[in-house]
């Protein structure tokens, strides 16, 4: 597969603040890479270096094999970029703004209008095309930014928090758009909303304090969680000792946790040993012992927890 985005040991500091310490990554065609990290982790700075807005202090970035530092115009022409907050010239109408972008992207005459119309249609902006951008709602403004980024059908699409501040319908629409475009582009999306990674990304990178602290699929990140594949059962409080003992005796179970008693029921959570799948065993056990189960859930491990674990543990490691 073609590698469309390459970053090689990028580093950037602003005065005494080291924003990006050492980031290397590669994104191939067809991939949607999620950039995760707490605020101030260096996500935006990395994107600004990839898009040529900022020059890195060290390291280099390539778009479609073209060095951003050496041939910025060519690299930028392969790229669609939605900066954080989707800035646009507020005193222009959506259509005239996109006309401007199309001209800069080298389209003229009929092909210019075709591209602008296509971008307006794709982002659902036809109805407000002749309104001034500053009069549009936040969701529409974001779509103008998106339209601007995808207008020339770029091979590489970099979006800084594309769904930030949108309502659920708008988020859904934007994610649909990303998925739709994914197969013939390399896309990088930064976010701190983890559900988004599950929804659209084929791969995720977690950045913390200017370094990559995790890299893998959403599934692989979840697997890092202790609760991944844990089985939770809700049973009558009276049976708790018997069930807990039986669960702990199962071969694949590492540990059994119990929660508080609520309305005469209690929740037990059996944590698997690494790599073990215990759901079937737990099911068989409960059936054999004829225990009445109110609820049984196989837990996936929330990405939120993964995120917290990864970013706080790296903090701990750094302080140590």
């Amino acid at each position: 597969m073609a590698v469309l985005v390459e970053a090689d040991r990028l580093r950037k500091s602003f005065g005494p603040i080291l924003a990006v310490e050492d980031i290397s990554l590669r994104v191939e065609k067809g991939e949607v890479l999620g950039f995760l990290g707490p605020n101030g982790a260096g996500k935006s700075t990395t994107m600004k270096m990839l898009t040529g807005f900022l020059e890195p202090d060290a390291g280099r970035a390539r778009i479609c094999g073209i060095s951003v530092a050496d041939r910025p115009k060519e690299a930028k022409s392969k790229l669609g970029y939605l900066p954080e907050g989707a800035p646009a010239y507020g005193d222009m109408t959506a259509r005239s703004f996109l006309n401007f972008i199309a001209e800069v992207r080298g389209f003229d005459g009929a092909s210019k209008h075709a591209h602008v119309d296509a971008a307006l249609a794709r982002t659902g902006l036809e109805g407000v095309a002749s309104q001034r951008i500053e009069t549009l709602s936040k969701g529409y403004k974001r779509r103008v930014g998106l339209a601007q980024a995808i207008l020339h059908d770029p091979e590489v699409l970099i979006m800084d928090e594309p769904t930030d501040g949108l309502d659920p319908n708008q988020k859904h629409h934007v994610r649909g758009l990303i998925t739709e475009m994914a197969k013939d582009k390399a896309i990088i999306v930064s976010t701190h909303i983890l559900e988004e990674v599950e929804a659209v990304c084929t791969r995720a990178i977690v950045i913390d304090r200017g370094r990559i602290v995790a890299d893998g699929t959403a599934e692989a990140l979840q697997r890092r969680m202790p609760y991944h594949n844990a089985v939770a059962v809700r049973i009558a409080a009276a049976e708790v000792e018997r069930v807990a003992g039986a669960l702990a005796a199962l071969a694949g179970v590492a540990k059994v946790e119990r929660a508080e008693v609520v309305n005469g029921h209690i929740r037990l959570r059996a944590l698997p040993k690494p790599g073990a799948a215990i759901a079937a065993d737990v099911g068989a056990l409960l059936r054999d012992q004829s225990i009445i189960v109110e609820e049984l859930v196989v837990e996936r491990g929330k990405l939120d927890d993964v995120f917290r674990e990864i970013t706080t543990s790296s903090e701990g490691a750094r302080h140590a």
Binding site: G52, F53, P72, K73, K76, Y81, P83, P87, G106
Partner: peptide, 8 residues
């Protein structure tokens, strides 16, 4: 940021 990341 928009202007400087366009091919200009």
């Amino acid at each position: 940021e928009l202007l400087m990341t366009l091919p200009i």
